[in-house]
């Protein structure tokens, strides 16, 4: 009914957070890394604000396509009150229940997947740096 509103709300918060972080972040120091285990390259780690944008993209993209599905099913209209379920109290209660269950679960799953991506990225970063240490420095 309006489950997409919950991830969209998180998307607003994370977008603002990413913008604020981007302004505050200082330039990362460069490190020697190896992408292929054969040669080394000088590179900088991507900042956290950029990783936060991954979450923004997942949340905004998913919410936009889900919003379309709700338009398709006549649950969202381009005129007031926009969410058809708000026009009567029984439907409104059902809508709030759906937001509290499906909406929060969707947001949680997307966030957990993003956290897993951060974990994998951290391991890959460590491996690339560790691999470079075993190789002769780049000329």
């Amino acid at each position: 009914m309006a489950c997409f509103v919950v991830p969209a709300a998180e998307a607003v918060i994370t977008t603002v957070a990413a913008k604020v972080l981007e302004k505050k972040e200082s330039a990362s120091e460069s490190v020697q890394v190896s992408f292929n285990g054969v040669t080394t390259t000088e590179a900088v780690k991507i900042p956290f604000s950029r990783k936060l944008k991954w979450l923004n993209n997942l949340l905004w993209g998913g919410s936009a396509l889900l919003a379309f599905e709700h338009v398709w099913h006549g649950e969202v209209t381009p005129w007031f009150p926009f969410l058809t379920a708000t026009s009567n109290p029984v439907d409104a209660v059902e809508m709030l229940h759906e937001m509290a269950t499906a909406g929060i679960s969707m947001t949680a799953l997307v966030t957990v997947v993003w956290l897993a991506m951060l974990g994998v990225a951290k391991i890959m970063e460590k491996n690339a740096i560790a691999s470079a240490k075993t190789l002769p420095p780049a000329k």
Binding site: F4, N57, L58, G61, G62, A64, V113
Partner: peptide
């Protein structure tokens, strides 16, 4: 990003 985000939500 768009399709994976929507896929997770539809899951």
């Amino acid at each position: 990003w768009m399709y994976w985000g929507a896929s997770l939500m539809w899951l």
